[in-house]
Design a protein around this nucleic acid. Structure first.
Lengths: 186, 186, 186, 186
DNA sequence: ATTTAAACGAGACGGTACGTCACGTCTTAGT
DNA sequence: ACTAAGACGTGACGTACCGTCTCGTTTAAAT
């Protein structure tokens, strides 16, 4: 039995079914199995319903990723170095143990051919980075230093993600955190 | 005028024309403008000629990518921080001013859906990183520090590439280099 | 300007444009100029639209052919010989002066490689022959004789079509009709 | 072991291998399985060897077809009706029990797109018809009647071939022969 | 006896068409 | 207004053959 309209308003069941189908497709078949047609088929949704809410394939990808947003634990270890370590540990664990890793990589790949995806991704990235930088700034470094530190930490994490090295070990993380925090001054 | 067969053997002119067309397309229009059809049109080649030698779009991409292997200048400024700055400056310039940047990004994107592309990319990346680390090690840091430094520098550069920020300015580069070198000790 | 979808239903304009383009191509360039690509180009239609409704080139050919089903005038001259003459005269004129001749020949050619085309053609042929036989039977011959007469008349006509002799002249037609009618008895 | 050149002259083994491969392909797979590539593969011949001796696919088809020229038995039953029956019986048997039927149909199909095939076919057809008419004329009918009779007989046979009804039965053949002979006078 | 000439197999070449897939847009019919 | 459904034009995918071309080999005929 098909889902029907519930009147002049967005049907949350449809949204949920679409996002679920999208997430499962990415997890099961990777980026190449992820197409609007396939999502529509699996979610028993009409293509226009998808396009109405997500302007293109990339935005749907971003939406799937955002669902994981809240999957990450926050951190407050008391020291800057501890925070950096916690951030990295959490992030790698998150990428390893949820479908978030593949999804994130897919977004990155998509961004290379789609300027809008690139912009959307940049915007999302910017927001997250700002929050991370704010967290680091609590430890008494300048905003500029916090931003730079964030950039280095995040770029390091991306590099590991893209190279499929999501389990660097605590020692490696500690070395990286130590190096960056030392570099940022004091 | 038209390229013809030179017998029962691969015609190097065709190969060259196809690789050139592929490289130019990537540089001019990015990954989304890169299709076998478009390459065939620009190279004045038949599609079967391309498929005869490169089994699919990804492999042609990898072939283009291999052509850039030795495109970067070396550096020797006398100090570690100077070397890091030179490395970054050279790399950003190389990415900005040759078709290498777009091609690299395309490979990276493609790697996310194609395991073979991923492996080829990882191998290439590993080799380049080793050479860079060796250059940094000349400045009197341990090999482990040189490797870590390289990783951070390279990941920073990749992050900028992926974010389309290939012209960070000397000041930014100096800040990054300073921070990383300070972090590495001394 | 361009034809668009009219919803989840077949667009009759597209169907018409495709059939028209197909018919014209056959008339202008013959069977060798008739390809799905060429039809799509001329009809300003997408290939998938054609394949959605006609599973292959042969079936599109058959569809064009069916359009001529009712193109022939009937006849009632009062005598059997007159009817045979009228049938042949009409048929040759129809084949000469409409695109039906080339289309019919194309179907026939296609039937030699495609069993489905062959079956469809046989069915069509059978129906037409039955109606022609019924017309002849009005002149007081047995049904068996009417069928045989029809078969001979039609095969003669096909032979002339295949041999590109569509204008045999009234005298030749009279000779053929006379011979066949005499043969059928009385 | 491959066939080699035997010097600056046509290698009859190659010619034979090519014609055999072509005939077998037509018999086994019909016109749609008949391609220069397939013939070359089966005959272990190079494509240029084929194109050297037969300018195109159609001419190779015609060459295969000519091989059957003399495959038919002659007839002399003593009566005109007997001769017509014998002609038809022989012809249907020939078409049924040799690869000639499929080959003839293929030629016919090809003739619809290739004017040269059409001309060659017409010429062959004309010659055979003349000989058949001469045989009929021995029974004391005028040349004009013999030609007309031949035309009707042959067109009937072609009709049966094209409709895949190559085994009409003796009774049907007798009816046809009787009708035509009666029509021709006497 | 050596050279020349042409046929041979092989297979690459630039093309055209095939039939399939997904894109993003559009309209319908129903809730 | 929003839904599922599905048609539309576009254009790339990877494959099959087309007819042409050149390669390197082989061998008979002409020197």
């Amino acid at each position: 039995m098909a889902r029907k309209s519930i009147g002049a308003q967005r049907n949350p069941e449809s949204e949920k079914a679409i996002l679920t189908a999208a997430r499962e497709l990415l997890a099961e078949e990777g980026l190449s199995g992820f197409s609007i047609e396939a999502v529509a088929r699996r979610a028993h949704a009409g293509k226009p319903t998808i396009y109405r809410w997500w302007p293109d394939r990339t935005r749907l990808l971003l939406a799937v990723y955002s669902e994981f947003k809240e999957g990450m634990r926050s951190f407050d270890t008391g020291t800057l170095e501890g925070d950096v370590r916690a951030f990295l540990t959490n992030l790698f664990e998150f990428w390893r143990e949820s479908p978030a890793g593949p999804v994130f990589k897919s977004i990155l790949a998509e961004s290379q051919s789609d300027p809008e995806a690139s912009a959307a991704f940049a915007e999302y990235h910017h927001g997250r980075a700002a929050r991370t930088a704010a967290a680091f700034a609590r430890r008494g470094i300048t905003d500029a230093d916090a931003k730079l530190l964030t950039e280095m930490v995040v770029n390091y994490a991306w590099g590991q993600l893209l190279a499929n090295r999501l389990d660097p070990g605590d020692a490696e993380i500690a070395r990286v955190a130590g190096m960056l925090v030392r570099g940022v001054g004091r």
